[in-house]
Design a protein around this nucleic acid. Structure first.
Lengths: 240, 240
DNA sequence: CGGATTCTTGATCACACTCAAGGAGCGTGG
DNA sequence: CCACGCTCCTTGAGTGTGATCAAGAATCCG
């Protein structure tokens, strides 16, 4: 129905983040376990999960699809904070206002856990607290890489890094070997994530294509031919 | 001895983050309280607290001074992730490797809490866990603003925003009223934080001076004359 | 098939970077 | 105490690169 077509386990990397989360919550719920049964929401493409500034009442777990988090300035300039995939968590305990919007990049299924109950569950289950800390840690690490990219990297490096990180975190198991990427988001979304314009993203991708580093029939299906080169470009290479 | 010269309480905004942290840890320590007594370190200006990639064994609390966290690329490009002041916490529980370096901007005093003991204290004290989550939340919010700034704002907006945020979070109490800023870091540090060059930072500050928005005798002492204009520039104004 | 959206490529321009030089401030040592 | 040297800051001139503006191609969807 969605992007996934195989029946393989959805996420090869970091399976830790997957549905074990709901299991953890069940365990932590104790006698109030029923209260922790999450609501499930289905989001159509481009549907909004919540807006910047909204009061927060849930923590969300992505079951299917891709969500983008973003923030816009008054004059319309937009920055995408991150793309989140299956198994990722959106929202923080003990936070009462959203600092960004969240929208579906592709049709998505989300589990919604009432935040108040997660907070009390934390006090009962050290294991859950530990889990949440670890989630926040990986989150922080991603943010730092993002800051590094936006502040100090050239467009070619940003795009190369984006392709590689997407491959690493959001690609269904089997396809990792074949170096096939399915990008659910538009060029504009990529540009708004990387602090560039869509034209620049296009030109960089075209350059990669010309050099034979990637190839692509459909604009959102990309095959990495030469992952070494791509890694090299992502690390230091300006690639004229 | 250090930057501060008055005997006033050091931090007016967010006193919550201040030495209450150590109190919390004491409370959570229970019978093992002694173990949680932190080591104290004195760092000279430019001294390194830890390096990117180091194994993490402590969580640090800044008692005096300013710390910068940063990351450098192989070719020497540097991105400063953040400036941390009195009361701020560096380091995360359940993280085992540093993802950035930390150095003293000015002579600093740091309390070092063994991370393993903080982790066990968390399991005993929901209140401590809650506190740490809140710290992580403000941290995340700062990061998001930083990403927004780097990805989508013009140099003038970045510099204006930097001055304002520094004023809001790192300025000793009394001086908030008089709109006096003491910047402990160099222009290069500011540039590396904002994803600019030091020349650009200089030029923007000069422009602000010409317009009468700020004034400054010593390069690191800045007086905000027209905070409204500064806020306006930070929000949307490109200011030719 | 028609219309809208997305993607790509081209031409031009503005702006921040680079390179360069001079000035200001500070610490050290004579 | 001044002189010297170092680092930091500031300003200028010129260049390169990514944004902007614009138009066409491709894709999607009803």
């Amino acid at each position: 129905m969605l992007d996934q077509k195989s029946s393989l386990p959805v996420r090869a990397a970091a399976p830790e983040n997957s549905s074990q989360f709901s299991q953890l919550l069940m365990d932590a719920g104790g006698q109030d376990a029923q209260k922790l049964i999450p609501t499930v929401r289905h989001l159509a493409r481009n549907a909004t999960l919540f807006y910047d500034g909204d009061a927060i009442s849930f923590i969300y777990e992505i079951i299917e699809g891709t969500i983008k988090t973003s923030k816009i300035l008054m004059d319309g300039r937009r920055q995408i904070i991150g793309f989140l995939g299956v198994g990722d968590i959106i929202g923080l305990p003990f936070e009462d206002e959203a600092h960004f919007s969240a929208e579906a990049v592709s049709a998505s299924i989300i589990r919604c856990y009432p935040i108040a109950q997660i907070e009390t569950a934390i006090t009962r289950s050290p294991h859950l607290a530990r889990k949440l800390f670890k989630i926040l840690n990986t989150d922080t690490t991603r943010q730092i890489d993002h800051v590094m990219s936006l502040g100090r990297k050239h467009p070619t490096e940003r795009v190369a890094g984006f392709l590689l990180s997407w491959r690493a975190t959001h690609t269904p198991g089997q396809e990792i070997k074949s170096h096939i990427l399915k990008l659910p988001m538009s060029r504009i979304d990529i540009a708004d994530y990387l602090g560039l314009t869509q034209e620049t993203v296009c030109r960089v991708l075209s350059k990669f294509k010309t050099r034979g580093i990637i190839q692509s029939e459909q604009s959102r299906d990309i095959v990495i031919n030469d992952i070494r080169s791509l890694e090299h470009v992502a690390e230091a290479g300006i690639l004229n």
